[in-house]
Design a binder for these strands. Structure first.
Length: 422
DNA sequence: TCTGGGGTCCTAGGACCC
DNA sequence: TCTGGGGTCCTAGGACCC
């Protein structure tokens, strides 16, 4: 039995989520912005056709947006995360195994009989159950399934589905795919390949093994084999345990005072602690960084980081805040216009793997600490993020990111449910 | 004026050990 | 006066992904 992979990818995912809950957006050009309303991170087809590239700074395209009546929205991750879960749960029972690859993509392992017909039905089912349109690419390796998916999305006549088994001349097809469109090859590697005369997926597939290995390392060699149909990347059904958890954000406006940096960093540290607890993990290392705005050429630049080990692995909010603020005071230099700060916790272990320590607080005290965290998490889930917070996180948050046009949390908060009028 | 956030994997080089 | 080589672990930096 030969293995075949399908890649299911939601079309313009964030834009599609918004359209499910506001049908007036259907057919209108729609752009979704990153945190801080900074970059364009999702575009409806209409916006793609206007030539606004992925990741473009929003302010550079303001005129295009105005001229074409583009609806511009802030991103709403609570909504997208929940819609993603619905899509994944729709797919899961239809195949023997699957890997959730990102918020809007899943690799499926297919049985022999599952081909174009199956993919069409699956596509219709996801559309009907969740409102989200998807494209499906099928191939003998993950890299080829990914490529099939891109082509399915781009070629309207295919109806959103392409199985490479139905393609007669693979080399002809591969010769129309430039290297930088191959999964795993970015701009830099494409330049290196071009220096050796390799410009298309077909060139790479037939490239000389030793040269590819030397130029791109094992990563490139794997891709070359995958293009030949030799599967090197397996389906990761169970997600690998996390190695680190980050929480970092740019400010809505520049920040100079230590006091405000501390508030922001304490807020991110609390968020990191919350994520640790959600995954039943403890961190041993805490890294902190600050940076000025790298795009601001006229201002003096400063960026710095520092790290420390916690006395005992922890996911308790005050522990992380204390460690983070101490590091911040080490690296803070007055007189700079800071744009960003963040925390990164690493060296993670499962709560259940913690070795008891001779000097640990009495068990009942540790239990109370855990209970306090659980109460805070519970209230914040119910009342909204940071409804209950530590004093060091501040109240006014003048540094908070901009999010001027966010839709409601239609599916995850009772008080933001959509209202239907009959 | 305005340029995201959260991850992964690989490699090279240094420290250290035997 | 002579002064190895192989293995492992760690870290920083680069490249990629969505």
């Amino acid at each position: 039995m030969k293995t075949r992979f399908a890649l299911v990818d939601c079309n313009n995912f964030y834009a599609s989520c918004e359209r499910v809950f506001d049908p007036r957006l259907i057919g209108r050009p729609l752009a979704i912005l990153s945190n801080n309303d900074g970059c364009v991170i999702a575009r409806s087809e209409e916006v793609k056709r206007l030539g606004v590239p992925m990741g473009a700074p929003a302010h550079e395209h303001k005129a295009t947006f105005e001229k074409n009546a583009v609806v511009v929205m802030s991103s709403n991750y609570a909504l997208y995360g929940d819609m993603s879960a619905r899509v994944m749960e729709t797919l899961r029972p239809c195949v023997p195994t699957m890997e959730v690859y990102s918020i809007d993509e899943a690799f499926l392992a297919l049985e022999d009989w599952q081909g174009v017909e199956f993919a069409r039905e699956l596509r219709a089912r996801v559309r009907q159950w969740t409102g989200i349109p998807v494209s499906i690419g099928i191939g003998p390796t993950k890299t080829l399934a990914k490529m099939a998916n891109r082509l399915a999305k781009k070629t309207l006549e295919l109806g959103g589905v392409l199985d490479l088994e139905t393609v007669r001349d693979m080399d002809e097809l591969l010769s129309r795919v430039p290297c930088e469109d191959i999964w795993g090859i970015g701009k830099r590697l494409a330049v290196r390949l071009a220096a050796g005369g390799i410009r298309t997926a077909c060139d790479l597939k037939h490239g000389e093994a030793a040269w590819v290995r030397k130029t791109l390392g094992v990563v490139g060699e794997r891709i070359r084999l995958e293009l030949q149909g030799v599967s090197c990347l397996t389906l990761e059904e169970v997600p690998a345990p996390k190695k680190g958890i980050a929480s970092a954000k740019s400010f809505g406006r520049p920040v100079e005072s230590l006091r405000e940096l501390e508030e922001a960093l304490a807020t991110y540290a609390a968020r990191a602690a919350e994520k640790l607890r959600a995954g039943r993990l403890l961190a041993r290392q805490v890294h902190v960084f600050v940076a000025t705005n790298p795009f601001s050429a006229r201002q003096p630049q400063y960026s710095a980081g520092a790290q420390t080990a916690l006395v005992r692995p922890s996911n308790h909010t005050p522990d992380l805040i204390a460690a983070a603020l101490e590091l911040l005071r080490e690296i803070y230099r007055p007189g700079h216009q800071y744009k960003k700060t963040g925390i990164f916790v690493t060296d993670l272990i499962a709560e259940s793997d913690l070795q008891p320590d001779l000097f640990d607080a009495a068990p009942e005290a540790a239990g109370r600490v855990r209970e306090l965290d659980q109460i805070v998490d519970g209230l914040n889930r119910k009342l909204g993020r940071n409804a209950i917070r530590y004093g060091s996180m501040g109240v006014k948050s003048r540094w908070a990111m901009r999010q001027e046009r966010r839709s409601r949390k239609f599916t995850t908060r009772w008080d933001e449910l959509p209202v239907a009028k009959a």
